[in-house]
Amino acid sequence: MTSAAETEAPPIVALEGVGKRFVKRLDVAMKLANMLGSDLREEVVQAVDDVHMAVREGEVVGLVGESGCGKSTLGRVVAGVHRATSGRMLYRGDDVSHLGDRAARDVRLKIQMIFQDPMSSLNPRFRVADIIGEAPKVHGIVGRGELDGYVDEMMRHVGLDASYKRRYPHQFSGGQRQRIGIARALAVKPEFLVCDEAVAALDVSIQAQVLNLFMRLREDFGLTYLFISHDLGVVEHLSDRVMIMYLGRIVEEAPTEALFATPNHPYTQALLAEVPRLEAKRRAYTPVKGEIPSPLNPPSGCHFHPRCPHALQRCRDEAPVLREIAPGRRSACHLNDRA
């Protein structure tokens, strides 16, 4: 796959310093307790912290990280489900938060999301035809008379038999449900798909089918993907470019082949060391030591330093900046400064 990053296409989606904080505010009882001398604080989770990224048209960007690292939140910010608390998001150069109602709606429709759980992402009380057809009908994408044919067409695009459209989600297998979710997203003619662990809940054989479907749809509709996963194998197979996320920050970004060949950041190295390979003989797995720290109380400096085998004093004091270390490669590690 030739990397689209090398061409001069304008970024379809760009994030500039995007952050997302979740704050659990104090309630009245807690405020009262504070007045009486206890020391309760608001709980703040910085799920996404100052993320800069750009996705060019036609690209497939993989976003990898452990669970709880904020990759899903980032995906939801891009898809417009969550509003970023800081920074700005540009769609084809326009700041999304400064658009009028209509334009904002159109941008929203252009960026669609495929969810992890194919069961809970479909309204259990709707028939397939309604699930796929609701948004096109409401937004007037197709006329009333053409809706039926349009739904059939969408179902065929994702490899579902159109005769099943009177059924309910629970009557389908996991893979079929995921296809319905994809058809629902396609039905509003999107340009950008955020796939949040879109195949993680599926059997391996079904995973391959759905991944192939994604790739085919990319060619048919000229789609751009942000592919969120914790499965490095899937990301390697699919992506042009990969970003590694750790505790709300992007720690490394590189073209797929380069990243898998020569991982730069110690966290990436640790992750890649753990990918099970078929050709591996008896080998001992050395898990990344320690648990992922609580995002409620992240470590100072580089978030990875408590688990990093190369940690220095500087790593504890100062957060490393995501810097270019080679053309098209960025990494956030103080070790690069020493070289």
């Binding site: 489900v81 929203r108 969810f115 992402s121 409401v138 937004h139 997203a185 509003v188």
Partner: peptide, 14 residues
Amino acid sequence: RKEYIEAAACLALS
């Protein structure tokens, strides 16, 4: 908190 509500928001439904 289920994803179909997020999906509906994603589809810009009112």
